[in-house]
């Protein structure tokens, strides 16, 4: 089957790119390995900093694809190659696709928190990740401990799998700080009697309205912030957890019992990103994410003409930035197909 453009990965980036391309009148196929589109965003309840429901963003993007995108779910890429400007993709099911251009939007995975052994994720009952908390929110369930009680105190742990040489990830995942602040507010909203403590190294409130959300968390919701990185966690007989950190602002070791601990897990390149990049011979940075042709001038293109990168394949990115990047990529693809590739 011949198409002008194939977009690989139907997360928010791939959906946005495919929708934009289709609106530009380009014949586009969207390949997704899972059974549904929506990627990580479909597992999220509300988005920072405005706390708009994630569903609104997906619905809007879904509509932009409704008129012309050929969406193929359950179609992981088995192989991909290119020859004389034509890309050939063999999905695990369905016929091979030939395309003039490919947009790689295979994104990221969340860091596997089990790798921070001393935090006890997967071992202690009341250690969950930020993604699991988001699932509880989006299913409209009440947040309870593993043993079914209402938590009285919750610890939110920043930088799990990010900025940590010990797990090989030196980079900052960018979105976790503000996610932690948002989730702290949401916990307080749901459980007014529950204290929330955030354990952080630095709070990186880099984007518009992030700092204001942090201010709101402190002023309106009484969330406490302790500047110290979690060194270890252990379980009490009643399944509550003992956290150990340095309270760096007093300069003393601190021990605190919490009923639950939320780990703000960072970004890692998705295995699909790594696998497809290897098949195409694309290069990646020391952080494992893919490198565009130039970080400033050609940040959506690669060394292979017609092959474009969009969104979190290039490193941690928030939804707003991923969507903007996807739209920029769509414009670049159109230029490429018109033979007017931006120099």
């Amino acid at each position: 089957m011949n198409r002008q453009v194939a977009v690989i990965g139907a997360g928010i980036t791939g959906m946005t790119a495919a929708g934009a391309l289709s609106e530009l009148g380009i014949d586009v196929i969207l390949l997704e390995k899972e059974e549904h589109t929506g990627g990580h965003v479909k597992n999220w309840d509300r988005l920072f900093p405005s706390r708009r429901p994630a569903k609104e963003v997906l619905d809007f993007t879904g509509k932009s694809m409704a008129t012309g995108v050929d969406i193929r779910c359950g179609s992981a890429v088995e192989s991909i190659g290119h020859n004389k400007g034509i890309f050939t993709i063999r999905p695990v099911k369905g016929e091979p696709v030939n395309a003039m251009s490919v947009v790689l939007a295979t994104g990221y995975d969340l860091f596997d928190a089990r790798k921070k052994e001393e935090y006890g994720y997967g071992i202690y009952d009341n250690v969950i990740t930020s993604a699991e908390l988001e699932t509880i929110f989006s299913e409209g369930k009440k947040l309870t401990t593993h043993q079914g009680t209402t938590p009285q105190r919750i610890g939110i742990i920043h930088c799990v799998g990010s900025r940590d040489e010990k797990v090989g990830n030196l980079y900052c995942s960018k979105v976790c700080c503000v996610t932690g602040v948002k989730q702290a507010i949401e916990i307080r909203e749901m459980l007014p009697g529950c204290e929330v403590f955030s354990f952080y190294m630095d709070l990186r409130m880099y984007d518009r309205n992030f700092e204001e959300l942090y201010f709101e968390a402190q002023q309106k919701w009484g969330v406490s912030f302790i500047r110290g990185r979690l060194s270890e966690c252990a379980e009490n007989p009643d399944h509550s957890l003992v956290l150990k950190t340095e309270d760096t602002l007093t300069g003393r070791p601190l021990k605190m019992t919490v009923d639950m601990m939320i780990l703000l897990v960072g970004f890692v390149p998705s295995p699909e990103t790594v696998r497809i990049a290897r098949m195409l011979g694309l290069s990646s940075g020391p952080d494992g994410f893919l490198l565009p042709a130039d970080e400033h001038f050609h940040d959506n293109t690669t060394t292979i003409p017609g092959l474009f990168l969009a969104g979190a394949v290039k490193g941690p990115a928030c939804i707003v930035n991923s969507m903007a990047d996807a739209r920029a990529t769509a414009m670049q693809v159109k230029s490429y197909l018109n033979g007017e590739m931006l120099k």
Binding site: L230, E232, K244, G251, P253
Partner: peptide, 9 residues
Amino acid sequence: IGCGSCTAT
């Protein structure tokens, strides 16, 4: 970066 992991442990 002054995170205090060293002192905590």
